[in-house]
C-alpha cells in the first residue's frame, strides 16, 4: 500500500498534466488552474518540513557540542530572525514605518555584500587556476586555450583596440561551434529527462520512493 498509492498518484498526475498541455479546452484549463493553485500549497508544507528538519539537525549539533557546533547558531539565528523581522517587526531602525525596515537593512548590508563577495572571489581563483592549470599540453588543449583567449579578448573593449577581428572571431566561436556543441548537449539532456520522466510516471524508476513499503 505504501508503494502502490504514491505510484498511482504519480502515474495519474503525470499523465493528466502531460495530456492537459496539448488540449486547449476549458475542462483541460480547469484541471490546469486547479493544479497551479494546489502546487504552492503543497510546496508550503515542504517548506515547513525543510525548516523543521534543518532546525532539528542543528539543534542536535548544538546540544551534543559536535565539531564546529558554533556555526549552527549562525544558521539558526538568521533562519528565524529574518522572517520575524519581515513580518512581526516591519519597522525601521528609528522605529518608523516609512523608512527602510531592519529586515531591509540586514538584507542590503549583510546578505547582499556576503553573496557579492563570495561570487567576486571567483576572479581571484580563476586567475590562479589560469596560471597553474591552463596548459597547451595537446592539440585539443591548445585549441581550447586559443578559443578561450580569443573569446576573452573579444568580450572586452580592449580586444577591439588590439585587433578589430578579435570580437568578430569571438562572436563566431560563440554563434557556431559553441552553439552546435550546446545544442547537442541540450538535446541529449532533453531526451534523458523525457526518458526519466516516463520511467517515473509508469513506475519503472522507483528510487524516488526511498525505502517506503520495503
Amino acid at each position: 500500500m505504501k508503494r502502490t498509492v504514491p505510484l498511482m498518484i504519480v502515474m495519474v498526475g503525470g499523465i493528466l498534466m502531460m495530456v492537459q498541455y496539448f488540449i486547449p479546452h476549458q475542462y483541460s484549463q480547469a484541471v490546469f488552474d486547479s493544479y497551479v493553485s494546489w502546487a504552492p500549497i503543497i510546496a508550503a508544507f515542504a517548506l515547513i518540513l525543510g525548516v523543521g528538519s534543518l532546525t532539528r539537525v542543528h539543534a542536535h549539533k548544538i546540544r551534543r557540542k559536535a565539531e564546529n557546533w558554533q556555526y549552527s547558531w549562525a544558521v539558526l539565528i538568521p533562519l528565524y530572525a529574518m522572517p520575524v523581522l519581515a513580518h512581526i517587526w516591519p519597522v525601521s531602525l528609528s522605529g518608523g514605518m516609512d523608512e527602510p525596515s531592519i529586515f531591509h537593512f540586514l538584507f542590503m548590508h549583510i546578505q547582499v555584500p556576503i553573496q557579492a563577495t563570495m561570487f567576486s572571489m571567483l576572479a581571484f581563483y580563476i586567475a590562479s587556476a589560469a596560471f597553474r592549470a591552463f596548459r597547451a599540453k595537446s592539440a585539443l588543449a591548445t585549441v581550447l586555450l586559443l578559443a578561450a583567449v580569443i573569446v576573452m579578448l573579444g568580450q572586452v573593449p580592449i580586444g577591439d583596440l588590439i585587433a578589430k577581428w578579435f570580437p568578430q572571431i569571438g562572436l563566431w566561436i560563440l554563434r557556431y561551434p559553441n552553439l552546435a556543441a550546446k545544442r547537442a548537449i541540450m538535446l541529449g539532456v532533453g531526451f534523458g529527462i523525457l526518458a526519466t520522466n516516463l520511467k517515473i510516471i509508469f513506475g519503472v524508476e522507483r528510487n524516488w520512493l526511498g525505502g517506503a513499503g520495503k
Binding site: 576572479a123 580563476i126 586567475a127 589560469a130 596560471f131 597553474r132 591552463f134 596548459r135 597547451a136 586555450l145 578561450a148 583567449v149 576573452m152 579578448l153 568580450q155 572586452v156 573593449p157 580592449i158 580586444g159
Partner: peptide, 17 residues
C-alpha cells in the same frame, strides 16, 4: 575593469605556459 582583468588573466596563461 573587465578589460584589465582579462588582459591580466591572459598574461598569466601565457606566462604559465
Amino acid at each position: 575593469v573587465q578589460s584589465a582583468d582579462h588582459l591580466l588573466i591572459i598574461f598569466f596563461i601565457i606566462m604559465g605556459n
